[in-house]
Amino acid sequence: MIEFKEVSKSFGSTVALDNVSILFPKGKIIGLFGPNGAGKSTSMKLIMGLNRCDQGEVWVDGQSPQNKKQDVAYLPEIDYLYPWMNIAQAADFIRTFYADWDEAKYRELVQYLNLREDMKISKISKGQRAKTKLLLTVSRRAPYLLMDEPLSGIDILTREEIINTLIKDYREGEQTIIISTHEIAEVESLVDEVIFLDRGQIRLGGNAEDLRVERNMSLVELMKEAFRNAD
């Protein structure tokens, strides 16, 4: 379980998170939705220990994020891999650091995603890079998977491949996936729980199915409504 307790975080004069308390339950696929600058990436970076909160606390299974890095697999929005490496080298680099690396799964996914190990990171297309990031993140059997905008700027076929991969390898109950995106329609049927963030605050949150029962609306419509009410 990941817990945010009254977390505030600013960058200069920009408020990224404003006194936010969130519980990310274990074993669920959680959608973190909101427009650009809502605080989605900052939330993920706080969980990964790449940012520190100005106020409040972040706990990953009751521990500081700095001490839980081995249990979290992180897919940042930007290209974070060494451009001079090829896929095999990048995998070899990452594999060394994590006991939860699943070599069989990695081999299978290279095939499934139509990648080749000798592809150089700096030379491949945007879609292939997105798939490579996905490959290297989900080849670990990490209890927590953080994916920051894994679908942005990617063609529709690749999107489908990415979502299929997530479903195919998802381990119910054991694995917690937090996925941030502003393409809610794409992940509508993928998420268990949703959190709508806007300008550093939570507008709405809860179980996706319960929200549909209560409001008779899709998540896309819910998000529109949540933000309309906020203004």
């Binding site: 074993g27 696929i29 489908e160 299929n164 479903i167 998802y170 119910e172 049927s189 268990d192």
Partner: peptide, 14 residues
């Protein structure tokens, strides 16, 4: 079912 319908396995379980 989850893979074919492309939906969350937790939802199928439910």
């Amino acid at each position: 079912y989850a893979e074919k319908a492309r939906i969350n396995p937790n939802t199928v379980q439910r």
